[in-house]
């Protein structure tokens, strides 16, 4: 489904600030895989997401989706195959537009936009049906401006907008990190449900190790621009937070900063 080959990305090359964000990274995801990604700050997780989505381009390496090379395709074209939810709840929606208008915008992810009305009666019924999945009562507030929603509601809406058109790949970059624990749990639960419902191939970054263990069928750990540990479908169920920490220590040979702060 998704195949990354020798992805290399360096920022500020040739200056004292030179930073290798991704170093010869390899990743292969099969259809229906749900991979959780953990790693310390600056490990290159967001850069990886940006390279898959086409927001930035690698200095070397190829990105393939469904076997076709997307390496030089601009972000808006790649978006036909990719759904994305950002960390910031403000980033995934248009605040001055209504809930139904936002959904209409998302509805067009897979088809070219035309001069027909974005919100029609038929679509409105469809949107209402989709919003019911969230159990937040948003289906009764179709004409409310999204700017008036709470952070949790907005993030739930962003998640729905990114997924209800069934993308080939779903990218989630710490999409629960900016929410308080109760709302983060809600979004985590919705993520689980929606990914299962639409059978989405998903890549999810999180700083919460427990969340990374609870969700998905595979797990990868990143550090310094590389994948340093990988657990597949058969290995992942046996993992615990303690094992992950021990693994990190073994591979990097560095004592973790006393507690889990580096990863958690």
């Amino acid at each position: 489904m998704l195949q990354l080959d020798q992805i290399y990305k360096v920022f500020y090359e040739g200056t004292p600030d030179e930073k290798i964000a991704l170093n010869q990274l390899q990743l292969q995801m099969n259809p229906g895989d749900f991979v959780t990604v953990i790693g310390s700050n600056g490990a290159g997780k967001s850069t990886l997401m940006n390279i898959i989505s086409g927001n930035i381009f690698p200095d070397y390496g190829t990105v393939k989706i469904n076997g076709s090379d997307m390496s030089s395709m601009p972000e808006h074209k790649r978006a036909r195959k990719i759904g994305r939810v950002f960390q910031n709840p403000l980033a995934g929606t248009a605040p001055t537009m209504t809930i139904e208008e936002n959904l209409a915008l998302a509805y067009n992810r897979t088809k070219p936009r035309s001069l027909q009305f974005g919100v029609t009666k038929k679509r409105r019924d469809f949107f209402r049906e989709q919003l019911e999945i969230l159990h937040l009562g948003l289906e009764d507030r179709l004409q409310a401006k999204v700017g008036l929603l709470s952070g949790g509601e907005r993030q739930a809406l962003s998640l729905l907008m990114a997924t209800f058109t069934k993308p080939d790949i779903l990218l989630l970059d710490e999409h629960t990190a900016a929410l308080d624990p109760a709302r983060a749990d809600l979004i985590t639960k919705l993520t689980k449900e929606i990914v299962a419902k639409f059978q989405l191939t998903t890549l999810m970054v999180t700083h919460n190790m427990q969340q990374a263990l609870d969700l998905g069928n595979c797990l990868i750990m990143m550090d310094k621009g590389q994948i340093i540990f990988q657990a597949n479908e058969t290995e992942k169920p046996d993992l615990t937070v303690e094992k992950l920490l021990a693994e990190f220590q073994r591979i990097r040979g560095e004592a973790l900063l006393s507690d889990r702060s580096l990863l958690a």
Binding site: P74, H76, A79, I82, A94, L105, N108, T110
Partner: peptide, 8 residues
């Protein structure tokens, strides 16, 4: 956001 919904 618009770009992530495939608008140029």
């Amino acid at each position: 956001m618009v770009r992530s919904f495939s608008a140029n």
